[in-house]
């Protein structure tokens, strides 16, 4: 049972969260080539180790970036998506 830290609410139980997508993806558009669109839509880095992912804390409804390790499950930190995007 993970304790995930929401940047707004602090440590909360994993059942309050939803994994959205790995961080850093840029949405394509109708002008994307078939390969580019497939990459956006379906392909993942699926990193074994330290990852950055977009999660939502369902209780407060905010999306945020979660840094964690996909093998050890250690949580390294989180930040609001906006802040991450501005940085």
């Amino acid at each position: 049972m993970h304790l995930i830290c929401c940047p707004f609410c602090g440590n909360r139980d994993e059942t309050e969260f939803r994994f959205a997508v790995e961080a850093g993806k840029r949405r394509g558009s109708v002008s994307s080539s078939p390969d580019e669109w497939a990459k956006y839509l379906y392909f993942q880095n699926n990193v074994k180790g330290d990852t950055r992912e977009v999660w939502m804390h369902l209780t407060c409804g905010e999306l945020f970036i979660l840094s964690r390790n996909s093998v050890t499950h250690s949580i390294h930190g989180s930040e609001p998506v906006r802040k991450a995007a501005e940085a």
Partner: peptide, 14 residues
């Protein structure tokens, strides 16, 4: 609801 939130926060000025 979640999908609209995703779009609002990810692609619009929330």
């Amino acid at each position: 609801h979640l999908r609209l939130e995703d779009i609002r926060q990810d692609l619009f000025d929330p």
